[in-house]
Design a protein around this nucleic acid. Structure first.
Length: 249
DNA sequence: ATGGCTCTCGCGGAGAGA
């Protein structure tokens, strides 16, 4: 996202073009009082928000009424506003902005792992038979297939065994990586660095994921990464992340 | 990738992102 205020125009284009029912947003970089509810209301969406000044921040947009069920990850508030969950009809929908970690040597990396442990605890306590979705910016590549250059980057940030072990524990708690459920061997990225022409060289990472419970996976029709919106749209600067779209029956 | 963009805060340039 890189800031909702800076990306509101291109987000509006995307909502109008793709017409999603429910959306998870990450990296709002604004306080709740600054959230542009009216802009979304005009497009038919209501919003739940968990923001903070300048950094982080998550939101859920929906056409149907949403009931807030979780705001923030318990015990991890010091790492910022990074988790929000709501019930929308029969669907439990959570979105996360997982910590970056900066580098393996940085103290923030250890904090990232602890944050993931808290996320796994929270997910593990949820009912197994729910239709539930957990989506967002996970700031890790689940497997070698999800990186443009595993040989170069293995062991560095997003590519460590410690991060991947956390991700496997999330899956073990009863979630499927929906893009992999739909396309086990597909090489597809969701993020490309702004610098050095990385997008045009397809030097990207798949770090933006939609996870779903068995009940959701059974209803899965398609998942795709909306690469077109990593490009400039109507003169509006894109995020360095592309949206990920999952279609359920 | 030893950091070549693009944000935020706040009025210059530092810090964060991934």
């Amino acid at each position: 996202m890189n800031g909702l205020r800076a990306r509101l125009d291109i987000l509006r284009c995307w909502l109008q073009d793709r017409q999603p029912d429910v959306v998870g947003l990450q990296e709002l970089k604004l306080e709740d009082a600054q959230f542009p509810h009216e802009a979304f209301r005009e497009l038919g969406y209501r919003a739940l928000t968990h923001g903070q000044k300048a950094w982080n921040g998550v939101a859920i947009l929906s056409r149907e009424p949403a009931v807030l069920t979780q705001c923030g990850l318990a015990g991890q508030e010091a790492l910022g506003a990074r988790l929000l969950e709501a019930r929308i009809g029969e669907l439990r929908f959570a979105t996360v902005y997982c910590p970056n970690g900066r580098s393996v040597e940085n103290p923030e990396f250890a904090q990232k792992l602890i944050w993931f442990d808290a996320l796994i605890d929270w997910v593990s306590r949820q009912p197994r038979d729910d239709a539930s979705v957990l989506c967002g910016d996970f700031n890790l590549c689940p497997t070698a297939l999800d990186s443009w250059n595993e040989a170069l980057l293995h062991g560095s940030i997003f590519h460590t065994d410690a991060e991947r072990e956390r991700f496997q524990r999330l899956l073990a708690s009863g979630l499927r990586d929906l893009l992999r459920a739909h396309a086990p061997e597909l090489r597809a990225f969701s993020w490309w660095d702004y610098r050095g022409g990385a997008f045009h060289k397809n030097e990207g990472l798949r770090i933006d994921l939609v996870l779903g419970s068995a009940a959701v996976a059974a209803r899965l029709k398609s998942v795709r990464i909306d690469r077109d919106f990593r490009k400039k749209q109507q003169g509006f600067t894109p995020s360095d992340h592309a949206p990920v779209l999952a279609e359920l029956s």
